[in-house]
Nucleic acid binder design. Sequence first.
DNA 1: AATCGGATATGATCGGGATCATACCGGACT
DNA 2: AGTCCGGTATGATCCCGATCATATCCGATT
Lengths: 241, 241
Amino acid sequence: MIGIIPDSPPRSRRGGPGQGGMRQALEIDLGRAEFFRGMSPGLFGRIRHLVQESHFERQKVLYFEGQPAEYLWVIGSGEVRLYKSSASGRVTTLEVLKPGEMFGAVSSLDQDHYTASAEGVSSGVAWRLPRPTVLKVIGEEPALAVDILVVTSRRLRDAHERLRSFATDAAPARLARALLRATREGQARVTRRALAEASGTTVETAIRVLRRFEREGLIAGKVGLVQVVDEPALLRVAGEV
Amino acid sequence: MIGIIPDSPPRSRRGGPGQGGMRQALEIDLGRAEFFRGMSPGLFGRIRHLVQESHFERQKVLYFEGQPAEYLWVIGSGEVRLYKSSASGRVTTLEVLKPGEMFGAVSSLDQDHYTASAEGVSSGVAWRLPRPTVLKVIGEEPALAVDILVVTSRRLRDAHERLRSFATDAAPARLARALLRATREGQARVTRRALAEASGTTVETAIRVLRRFEREGLIAGKVGLVQVVDEPALLRVAGEV
DNA sequence: AATCGGATATGATCGGGATCATACCGGACT
DNA sequence: AGTCCGGTATGATCCCGATCATATCCGATT
C-alpha cells in the first residue's frame, strides 16, 4: 500500500509540452520486460498475479529517495526519470527510463531504502513486484540475476561516462550530450529545464546555449521540442567527435 | 599475455608520497575475495589454477580504456584506481579499489572492451581470470551473478550520488567528499592531485581549498598525507550535514 | 654534488556560468 | 474572458574556479 501512487484520475494544470502518453505509443508486455522476460514460464505464471499495476502521470512521484524500497518497478508504457535533489533544492536527473526497463532493483536488492526518487516524465503504466517476491524469485532462479546484472552494468558504465563528462566538460558539451541522449528519430521532446537537470546546469544556461545552437543551425526549437538539424556538429560539440 | 603488466621489477623515479605497499599491510586470500568467495568449493578448486597473478606498481597501468576486456580482476593487495581521460587530457578517477575488490567485471560481462582504465595507486598484487572462464563459471553457478550484482549495485549508487554532487556541489564540497572518502582512521594518503582528479577540479584549486581547510583547522597536511582534524566540520562542508 | 621531477604553494588574470531580474507567449483552468 | 503558470528569452552582474606563471622543497637519480 505504498500509498504514493493511488492510480489517481487525470491531473490538472499540467500544460507541459510534449507529453500525453499517446505520443509514444510504445508499450510492452510484462513478459517481454526486463526481469520478467528471463523467467521460466512456470515461475512467471506463478508470480504474475503478484504484479501490481499502477498508472502514473507526468511529474507524479512514484517514490522518494529515502523511502523504504518496497518494490521492483518495471515500466509498461510512458517514461520515468530517476533523480536526486541536493540540499539547496537543485535537481539532477540520473536516468530516464522507457517501457520495458526496470528500476528500484538496485535498492531492493541489498538496500532497504530507495537511493533516488522516481517520477513520471509522461503519463504511463508501471508494474511493481514486492521486494520479498523479488528476492524469492531470484533465489529460485539465480540466472535472473544475470539479467539484472547486465542492465545494472550498462547503467554503471553510463554513470561513469557521465561522471567524467560532468567533471571535465563545459556546459555546451554536457548539454549536447543530454540532448543527443534524449533524441529519438531526430527530435527530442524535452524542455530546457529537463536538459538542464540532466546536464548539471541551470535553465538559463540551457536556454542560452540551445539558442546559440539554434542560431548556428545545429538544432531547431519549439516549446518542449528540439529538432536535431546537424547531428554531426552536435556530436562534435559533445566531444564525441 | 595481455602484455601490459609483465611483473616488472621495482620501478624507478617514483618518489611520490605515501606509497610503497608495505604501509597498507592489508592483504586478502583469493578465496575470500569478491567473486571467488561465492563459489562452491568444488568449482573454486577447479578454476583456481586458471587464476593468473601479477604484481603492479604505483602509476602502472593494468589496462587502458578501449582495450579488449580479457579478464576479470581482483585485488590481492595494494590499491587500484579506475579512471577515464577526456579528450583534453584531463583525468577523472571513478573508483579506488582495495584488496578483495573486483574490477573489469562490468566490462567483461556484456562488453568486450574495458570502458575505463585501471592503474596502481600503490604497488600490489592482482589476480585475473580470463573472461571466457568467468562466463563459464557464472553459467555453471548463476548465484555468483548475485554477488557481482550486489557489488555493481553499490557502485552504481555511489556513482549516482557522485553524479549529483558533481552536478550541483561547489569545489570545496566535492573536495571534502573526496577527502573523507579516502580517509581511513583519521588520515588520507593522497596527493592534492589525486583529490583533484577524484573531485573534478584542478590541482591548484585542490591545493588552495585544502590550504584553507588547514588554516581553518579542519585538516593538517603533509606531503601526500592529510590528517582529518575536524571531521564534523568537513562533513558539513561536504554537505552531508 | 648536481640535477631532475613531483608535490605543494601562491599570485595574477580571465571567463564561463550562476544568479537575479524582467518580459513575452500560449495553453489550461476558473 | 480573464487569470495564472510554465516555458522560453535576454540583459546585467558577480564570483568561483580554471589557467598561466613562478617559486620552494625534497627525495631520487645520475
